[in-house]
């Protein structure tokens, strides 16, 4: 297994190198200029802009710039934001907690909703409950998060005036009020993201349980006289979770992608909104760092999914 892990890790190095080269080239070829706003301001002399471009090495040829990026990346230097004049890793670390809190809670919510509902639907296929759950699940994953997000804002913030729709990472309160305010503002983004994932996860869960429940060992367990609850938890759900877990692992990068839009709508100061703002401001080092992190996530979660699969299902061997 460790040999397999080593080989997979080595293979991912050229993959990541290739991804970074493509990303860098596309970003360099894309139109736009980080000092654009200075260009349209008649108060700023053009020399200042030229000077800044030279200082940040924007006028060097593409291969030189790429080589410089690779070398500093190896040394653990993520680069320097043109727009904020701060190191990129500081920026990302500042944004990470908000993203992790929102994504983590959303994932948790999705699992808490999807596993019981999916299982119950499978136990009573084509019952009223199953029909309703299926319909809701289809509605859930056909509605994009930016749409449900706006819908939630209209309903809960504007019509009912229950929840704030602007997320503030720093809340000037202490004790219970602090938790309460955080909870209130997190409800909508977490619900939007969590329910979207829960929708497809419910369908996976239902299918997986349906597959397992008809197998002979489940009948054996029942025949042994095990209670229905024990059979369900220890024999059915446990085995049904194997494909679901790997699917969740594969979905993680996708969740980050979905979070970009949701973060923008609710003004959550996470990695996604950092990415959007940096793209709008043509802040290449930040865009490069964030997209590179996303591609690392894709590679890593693929690997994790493969490893998890083998760990959960001992019949699978690594070669």
């Amino acid at each position: 297994m460790s040999k397999y892990l080593l080989r997979r890790t080595l293979v991912s190095i050229p993959v990541l190198a290739g991804i970074s080269a493509v990303l860098f080239t596309i970003l360099a070829l894309a139109p736009g200029d980080p000092f654009e706003e200075l260009a349209t301001n008649p108060n700023v002399p053009p020399e200042v802009r030229m000077n800044l471009r030279a200082k940040f090495g924007l006028d060097d040829p593409l291969p030189v710039r790429y080589a410089r990026w690779v070398v500093s990346m190896m040394r653990g230097d993520w680069g320097f934001s043109f727009v904020s004049r701060v190191d990129v890793d500081t920026l990302i670390l500042q944004r990470l907690p908000a993203t992790l809190v929102v994504l983590g809670s959303a994932l948790l919510l999705a699992i808490l909703v999807a596993v019981p509902i999916g299982t119950y639907s499978a136990l009573r296929p084509y019952s009223i409950f199953d029909q309703v759950a299926t319909t809701l699940a289809f509605i859930g994953f056909s509605l994009p998060t930016f749409f449900t997000g706006l819908l939630f804002i209209l309903l809960f913030s504007i019509h009912l005036d229950w929840l704030p729709f602007i997320y503030r990472a720093d809340i000037g309160a202490t004790g219970w009020r602090w938790y309460w305010e955080h909870l209130r503002q997190a409800i909508m983004p977490v619900a939007v993201l969590g329910l979207f994932q829960a929708a497809s996860m419910t369908r996976f869960m239902r299918a997986a349980v349906l597959d397992v429940i008809r197998l002979d060992y489940v009948n054996t367990a029942r025949a042994k006289g095990l209670s229905e609850a024990t059979t369900l938890v220890k024999h059915v759900v446990r085995n049904a979770l194997i494909p679901v877990v790997t699917l969740v692992a594969l979905q993680v990068p996708g969740i980050f992608g979905g979070a970009i839009v949701t973060e923008q709508i609710f003004r959550v100061p996470g990695i996604g909104s950092l990415l959007i703002n940096s793209i709008l401001a043509n802040d290449t080092p930040v865009v490069m760092a964030v997209t590179f992190i996303f591609s690392c996530l894709v590679v890593a979660s693929n690997l994790a999914a493969d490893l998890l699969y083998g760990w959960l299902d001992p019949r699978i061997s690594y070669r």
Binding site: F165, D170, Q264, I265, S273
Partner: peptide, 20 residues
């Protein structure tokens, strides 16, 4: 507090409509 980000329309809402 000076909060940034988002879009102009929802910013207008947060001040003029909901008073947040």
């Amino acid at each position: 507090e000076m909060k940034g980000g988002g879009d102009a329309v929802s910013a207008a809402r947060a001040v003029i409509q909901t008073g947040e």
